[in-house]
Design a protein around this nucleic acid. Structure first.
Lengths: 212, 212, 212, 212
DNA sequence: CATGAATGAGTCTTCATTCAT
DNA sequence: GATGAATGAAGACTCATTCAT
């Protein structure tokens, strides 16, 4: 771990039950404040207040505000990355159509489990330590997806890295649009099937033999 | 215009040449400061300084900081929306494959003309007045795209709103990934052709008759 | 100027009359707060308050608290160093007895001109940037004194650097004792003649020929 | 003992061995923290940590931070005062030249036994309860020195209080200059002999009859 | 008695905004 | 209109002290 990253690490491992509870309360509070007030008004005082504790306590668990927000973001991204990696492993060796369904399904499940959280954390990922974290997770996910793609029996990918990058961010875009609320009612209902269509079509362009 | 929106409007219409120049200087300065310092350190004083004027003068053109940043964002989005609308009009009645090429090309041209600007403004779009603005522009662009899609002679879209929403945000995702810098080298080179492939494949799923 | 020192420099040169007044008010206020409250309670807010301005204004003139206090200290030390250098020049080539009188007189005049100030600044010289400043001035003064000593017609100094260092700090000690208030009433009255006696005796140990 | 002074007294007399050990650990820790971090960062938590105990325990021995630091300072000053008083008693009735040697030697031994400690405590002596303590000890030492001077067979002091005050602080000055690090290399080596020279010369000005 | 998490007042510092010149 | 010094509210962070365990 380099020095820059070290500065964002939690101060103590939440081993004790008490700590775990406190840390979770902080994460929840941070997301709530982020949602209700926005990043610029997401202050340590407000987070502490919403978490039902004093400012000082926040600093018992995190060395600074950025570390707290980064931790929240990391936990979230970790969840998403795990989902993507899980799906990639689960659909290894499967036909690309199944991969498409599996990937979309896993991604949506992870991102829409707690939409508030997902939405709130977009702001954090743009700030300070955020980008690095996002980039790191991005790499993890793209590697997993690329590996899965290469295992497809019915397709051949010249540049799996590029394909996985495009495929993944093509999913990210619409989901973000949804979470950011830039959509008409009804969008969410059709989202999954439409993303499957999108991904299936895209991956299908690399199919080995034409469909019979 | 509701009161909330009114508060973000420029104080004066830049009718005089002088004003236009000043306003442009402010926008440029804002983007530079945003890029170099980040949103939280993008202060009125710093913007004024880089624009070669005094803080006081900034307030002659904008009632407050948010109004200035919103104006910069709006100008940018306006440009992108214009590009999308232009392309939609230009490819009206054309086959979907051409639409795909036209849309991708127009979008990339608009977004990558000044990557710094595009990147810097993501932060603004997440803060305060930003989301509303983005949503408004989003609607404009989706309407244009939907109208174009409906004019395609070789395809039939059951839900043009949904298709255009997915299509557009599927382009937005990868471009943002690029601008945010979450990519491996080489990504940018292949981006356009890959997006064309993506969009062509996606729109192609609504093709009326199978390719001959 | 190295980076460490640069951080303590005033933000703007007090060229304008207004600035000079403000800066002087700040220095005076700082000394008063230092005197009345001690270094640990000498906060930016209290200084600003005593100077009749707001905290923000303090930061218009100094980048931080340490810079303000350092500036006050530097001004003071500069005055003392000037006095010592002046005396050293004035008594160049004179007999050591006259040097002793001149040095004591100049030092006391400089240090006791504003006893409150002298006393208050002892705390600052121990803190942060203080020691460096003191050391720098110390060197300046010792050089001057050593040069003067070497010019004495009636004495010969094997190690002028050492002699001047001891001579000077032997004056500093009693003056500090006085300013710190560790003395019985009546101490101040006899101080000058006693320091002259001390210094004369000490320098006299290097006299070339016995008095006739 | 007045109320102000009472507030700084240790809570319990270290009668038990355990307590003595703990208190000593605290003193040592305080000096280390003071040396490494400076007065303003010399916090109770840090002291406790370095002493290998919890903050709470510190408050078992001292009512507050100032009391702890004052106790450390007092112990140190007590040692110096003891040394001075010892020397004064030892050289009672001796010639002034021997007194000079004895005084310098005792003072240097006491102050330079643990230079880190001596240096670190200068900060404490300037803050809060410090000055009172220093003043008290100063009086003790000056009384002892004055008494010794009056016993000299070969000199006559009109104002022993004044002479002892000057003599003592003329020693204090150079030693502090050394400890504060404002000196050129080589200063420490010649310090003792030079101080003896200084003091001998100064006391010699009160010699009864000229040397034979 | 020891522990160390919790508290919250108090510091430094920044910055949007105003307004006298 | 332009200027930029002044304002002061607000934010991040620290730390002496307490008290439940």
């Amino acid at each position: 771990m380099d020095t820059a990253t070290a500065a964002l690490k939690p101060r103590k491992n939440p081993v004790q039950a008490r700590s775990t509870v406190t840390v979770e309360a902080l994460h929840t509070a941070a997301i709530q404040v982020l949602t209700r007030e926005g990043l610029s008004r997401c202050t340590t005082t407000r987070i502490a207040e919403r978490a039902g504790m004093s400012v000082g306590s926040v600093y018992q668990y995190y060395p600074n505000r950025d570390a707290l927000l980064s931790a929240v973001l990391e936990t979230h991204l970790e969840g998403v990355a795990d989902a993507i990696e899980g799906a990639s492993r689960a659909f290894n060796g499967k036909p690309i159509d199944e991969m498409a369904v599996g990937l979309v399904s896993a991604f949506l499940a992870a991102k829409l489990r707690d939409p508030q959280e997902s939405k709130a954390l977009y702001a954090v990922s743009a700030d300070r330590g955020g980008p690095l974290l996002v980039q790191k997770m991005h790499k993890r996910m793209l590697s997993a997806i690329a590996a899965m793609l290469e295992s497809a029996p019915d397709a051949r990918f010249d540049d799996p890295a590029m394909t996985s990058a495009i495929a993944f961010s093509a999913l990210v875009g619409p989901v973000r649009t949804l979470l950011d609320g830039y959509v008409e009612p009804g969008f969410e209902e059709g989202l999954e099937s439409e993303l499957v269509r999108l991904l299936t079509a895209y991956l299908g362009t690399h199919r080995l033999s034409p469909e019979v």
